[in-house]
Simulated scan of single mutants.
Amino acid sequence: MDSTQKNILMQMNKVSKAVLKAKEEEGSVVYCRKEILEEAVITLEENPDSSLVLFGVKNTEEIDKKLVERLKENNGYLFHTIDKMSERGRAIDIDLINPLTGRVMTGSSSGGCVNILKGINDLAIGTDGGGSVLAPAISTGLFSIMAKGMGLKGTSIKASTDNIKFTPGIGVISHSYDICKSAIETLITKKNVSIDENKNEKIKIVIPKKESILLPNGIDMRESLNGVIDGIKDSVEIIEKDFNKIESRLEAIPFCEEIFKEDIDIIITMEGPIDIYGLGDSVLGTWGKVGSNIQNESGKYLLKVANMIDATAVTIPTRELGIGVLIIAKKGLESGKSAIKLGDMIRKLYSVPELYSRYFIEGYKKKNKGFI
C-alpha cells in the first residue's frame, strides 16, 4: 500500500469516526450532515493526498450561508455540524461542561469548542459580541481568530447586558493555528489575498505596566507576558501603559480607542484563567457583591471589548490552564494581518502539554473499548 492509499484510508477513518461521535453527542451538536461521507469520498477522489478539515457552524442566523459555502469550496474543508450556542448568547453555557477544566462551559460559541475537543471537528465558525469566540477558545486551550476588523461580521445590531450596541464579529476556533489562518483567509475575501503578506514596518504594541493589574491567580499581568515580550521584542516597538481600569467594559472601550488614536497597531494582554476562579457572566454579576465578585474573578479583560471596538483579535493558548495571550489590532486589513502574523510568532513560544494533545486532539481517535 503506497502513501496515497494510506492517506485515503486514514482520512476516511477520521471522517467516519467523527460522524459516529456527532450522532452520539446529545449536548454540543444540534445537527450533523450525513452528506459529509459522500463529500469526503468525492474530495479524496479528486485530491487523494488531501488532509480533510471538518468544521462546524454556530447555530445562529448571524453567520451568512454564503460564508459556509465559501469555506466548503476550499479544498478539503467539509461542513459537518451545526454547533450548540449558549441560551440567548449567555457568556456561560449551563448546559455544557468544559471537557478540559470540568467547569461550566464558557459561551456563547460553546458547542464549537466542545466538538473540537471531542474529536468531532477540527474547526468551528462562531460569532463574538463580547468575547463569545475568544473566551471559549482560551478556556479550552484552542486557537482563535475573530476578524471583525477585517470585515468579517454579522448583520444585526444587538445590545449587550450593559446596553452597549454592537454588530457581532465572526471568527474561527481550532486546535491548529494554521487551520485558523487558512479559514480566515478564505472567509474574508474571494480574491487571492494572503494574510501573511503585509508591511514589514516595525509594529507598535501596547502592553500593561507592572503592578497595574493582577490576574485572578495573583500573577501580575505584565510579568505573565515576560516570555512573550522576550520572544517578539526584536520585531516590535513596545509601549507600556497603566491597565488598571480594563476590568470594566465601559472603561475598557474608550481606553482601547484612545490607544488606537495614538498611531498604535496592537494591544497585547494575558487573559484568564477563564471561568476557573469565577464565572464571567453578567446575569450573575448583577446579584450584589457576591455576584459581582464571581464575575470579576473570571479572568476576562479586553476580550470582552475586542468586537465592540471593531478590532481583529487573536488568542494563543499557553501552558497554563485557561490562560491565553490576546492580540487586539485596530480596524483595518493591514492591522489585522499584523495581528495574525504576531500570533504566528507568539504561538511558537508555547506548546500545550503532551497529555492534552494525546487525550483530546489525538485521544478521541481511539475510543476506549467498554464491555458493550
Rank of each mutant, 00 (worst) to 15 (best):
residue 241 K to P: 14
residue 74 N to C: 14
residue 363 G to P: 02
residue 150 M to W: 02
residue 220 D to K: 11
residue 317 P to W: 00
residue 64 D to I: 08
residue 104 V to H: 01
residue 54 L to Q: 00
residue 107 G to N: 08
residue 333 L to A: 00
residue 298 S to Y: 02
residue 236 V to M: 09
residue 273 P to S: 01
residue 101 T to P: 09
residue 60 T to K: 03
residue 163 N to Y: 13
residue 291 G to N: 11
residue 47 N to K: 12
residue 63 I to F: 02
residue 262 E to D: 15
residue 276 I to V: 15
residue 203 I to S: 07
residue 94 I to D: 12
residue 369 K to N: 02
residue 33 R to H: 07
residue 256 C to N: 13
residue 149 G to R: 02
residue 220 D to S: 13
residue 279 L to I: 07
residue 179 I to T: 15
residue 115 N to C: 14
residue 178 D to F: 03
residue 177 Y to I: 10
residue 47 N to H: 04
residue 138 I to Q: 05
residue 36 I to C: 04
residue 361 I to V: 15
residue 335 S to C: 01
residue 70 R to V: 08
residue 176 S to Y: 05
residue 153 K to C: 11
residue 307 N to Q: 07
residue 195 I to P: 13
residue 298 S to M: 05
residue 262 E to V: 01
residue 134 L to P: 05
residue 222 R to N: 13
residue 299 G to R: 08
residue 157 I to M: 15
residue 21 K to F: 12
residue 289 K to D: 13
residue 332 G to M: 05
residue 173 I to R: 06
residue 151 G to H: 06
residue 223 E to P: 02
residue 149 G to F: 01
residue 67 L to M: 13
residue 194 S to C: 04
residue 43 T to I: 10
residue 353 P to V: 00
residue 221 M to S: 11
residue 369 K to I: 04
residue 182 S to I: 06
residue 83 D to V: 06
residue 178 D to W: 00
residue 182 S to W: 00
residue 309 I to D: 02
residue 108 S to I: 03
residue 14 K to Q: 10
residue 234 D to M: 08
residue 325 V to Y: 01
residue 139 S to I: 06
residue 260 F to R: 15
residue 131 G to F: 02
residue 252 A to K: 02
residue 195 I to G: 12
residue 264 I to C: 13
residue 347 R to H: 00
residue 241 K to G: 12
residue 266 I to D: 08
residue 236 V to K: 07
residue 128 D to I: 04
residue 64 D to H: 14
residue 135 A to R: 15
residue 127 T to Q: 05
residue 260 F to W: 14
residue 361 I to P: 04
residue 80 H to E: 08
residue 54 L to W: 00
residue 190 K to S: 15
residue 15 V to Y: 00
residue 61 E to H: 10
residue 336 G to N: 08
residue 142 L to C: 05
residue 141 G to C: 07
residue 40 A to D: 04
residue 276 I to R: 10
residue 172 V to W: 03
residue 368 N to M: 12
residue 115 N to Q: 12
residue 312 T to Y: 01
residue 76 G to C: 07
residue 23 K to N: 11
residue 173 I to S: 03
residue 337 K to V: 00
residue 235 S to V: 12
residue 159 A to C: 12
residue 314 V to C: 05
residue 341 K to E: 09
residue 332 G to L: 06
residue 163 N to A: 15
residue 28 S to E: 07
residue 219 I to Q: 04
residue 357 S to L: 11
residue 160 S to G: 12
residue 305 V to I: 15
residue 309 I to R: 03
residue 295 Q to N: 12
residue 304 K to L: 14
residue 78 L to P: 03
residue 259 I to D: 11
residue 21 K to D: 02
residue 173 I to D: 05
residue 147 A to G: 11
residue 242 D to Q: 13
residue 273 P to C: 01
residue 4 T to S: 06
residue 247 E to D: 13
residue 260 F to L: 14
residue 157 I to P: 05
residue 10 M to I: 06
residue 306 A to L: 06
residue 207 I to A: 09
residue 256 C to F: 01
residue 210 K to P: 03
residue 368 N to Q: 12
residue 136 P to Y: 01
residue 86 S to I: 10
residue 302 L to F: 04
residue 364 Y to F: 11
residue 237 E to D: 13
residue 188 I to S: 00
residue 28 S to C: 11
residue 330 K to P: 10
residue 334 E to N: 13
residue 212 S to W: 09
